[in-house]
């Protein structure tokens, strides 16, 4: 794994003078062997259906507490999915870990896993992708392979089936990715400015993936395809050149959002209401929904309040997050003493 993704517990790149605070036990008990911090993602962004994805500053943290005999695992989940994900045999991280070991011919060392999950499940914020990415990087770390970034991403994409979540999840920032089933091409775009917020509204409504797929048309009008081509190109060009005034057009879409916004109460209303608030540069359904994300420059309060009010008016309980399009992707943190042993 690339050194840029590896930290020790004793390093910290915070811009806010961390020296006055002892962070040496960060997300880890003393016995933790390694810790993987993995961001949420917003895929299918605007016109970039199945192509554009963005990492968000909301993180699941996975700790490997101790090593166990080969193919023996335990799993303790705190937070989101605590009642659903604790069965080690069906846990997606462990399944991804075993798959990566198999692909690379690595010994499937068992381990005790502790998950601290804050990314809501099945809401379009790439929760499952965090498990896939973490499983693959843990396989790489425990086997001491130092696998190149492109190969790690290829394995992650093979497991996930599409690249638009795992690419930004692993690399951070905004990524453009294309996958032909065997080969992956990807480009990471420049980071968002510091004063750009991403407000995410997560309604407590589960949209089944099968329903989200069924909602899409089997064929699209030629005019709609041309509309999306132009918007997707504009979105990437605007992002690459910091021409943020074009984001609203780039986030517009005719292939998926008009259909999927009807699958949850208030979806179409929130998309229309939020885009007109001053400071809102664009609004989109995250993944296949039902989460809605808005990019906001300056204070996010008005957009945040409007999103809360809209779902409340439609009788939907919701969670809301103020995030940033984090430039940093997955980080694996290894205590100094264990780092030396992994490198040997």
């Amino acid at each position: 794994m690339s050194p840029s993704h590896v930290d020790s517990f004793h390093s910290n790149s915070s811009p806010l003078n961390p020296s006055d605070l002892n962070l040496s036990h960060l997300h880890s008990s003393h016995s933790c062997l390694l810790s993987v911090r993995v961001p949420a993602t917003s895929a299918n962004l605007g016109a970039g259906f199945d192509t554009l994805g963005m990492a968000l500053s909301l993180y699941n943290v996975f700790n490997v507490k101790e090593l166990l005999p080969d193919e023996e695992f335990s799993c303790d989940v705190v937070g989101e999915g605590a009642s659903l994900l604790s069965d080690a045999r069906s846990n997606m991280l462990i399944q991804s870990y075993l798959r990566a070991c198999e692909v690379w011919g690595a010994r499937p060392i068992g381990f005790a896993l502790e998950c601290h999950n804050v990314i809501p499940l099945c809401r379009g914020l790439g929760s499952s992708s965090t498990a896939v990415v973490a499983g693959v990087v843990i396989a790489d770390a425990l086997a001491g392979l130092q696998t190149p970034e492109a190969e790690l991403l290829r394995v992650m994409t093979t497991i996930e089936g599409h690249p638009d979540n795992v690419a930004p999840c692993f690399l951070g920032g905004m990524t453009v990715s294309c996958w032909d089933g065997e080969e992956l091409r990807y480009v990471k775009l420049p980071p968002l400015p510091d004063d750009m917020h991403i407000v995410a509204a997560v309604p407590d409504v589960q949209v089944r993936t099968s329903d989200a797929r069924k909602a899409l048309p089997k064929e699209v009008e030629f005019g709609d395809a041309v509309f999306n081509l132009g918007r997707a190109a504009l979105l990437c060009a605007a992002w690459a050149t910091s021409r943020w005034e074009h984001l609203a057009w780039g986030m517009d879409d005719r292939l998926h959002q008009p259909y999927r916004s009807l699958l949850f109460p208030g979806g179409d209303v929130i998309m229309d209401r939020v885009r007109h608030i001053p400071g809102c540069l664009g609004v989109a359904i995250s993944g296949s929904g039902p989460t809605v994300v808005a990019l906001v420059r300056g204070g996010p309060g008005k957009v945040a309040s409007a999103m809360c009010r809209t779902f409340s008016e439609h009788g939907v309980a919701s969670q809301f997050f103020v995030l940033e399009g984090t430039a940093q992707g997955t980080r694996i943190m290894i205590p100094e003493n264990h780092k030396r042993s992994f490198e040997q």
Partner: peptide, 26 residues
């Protein structure tokens, strides 16, 4: 005070490596 509060929290969360910030105005 939501704008100021969110900005303060955003900076602190980044500095201390917390997992995120959620809010609710309703």
């Amino acid at each position: 005070c939501l704008d100021n509060a969110v900005e303060a929290c955003r900076q602190v969360v980044k500095a201390i490596d917390a997992q995120g910030v959620s809010f609710n105005t309703e």
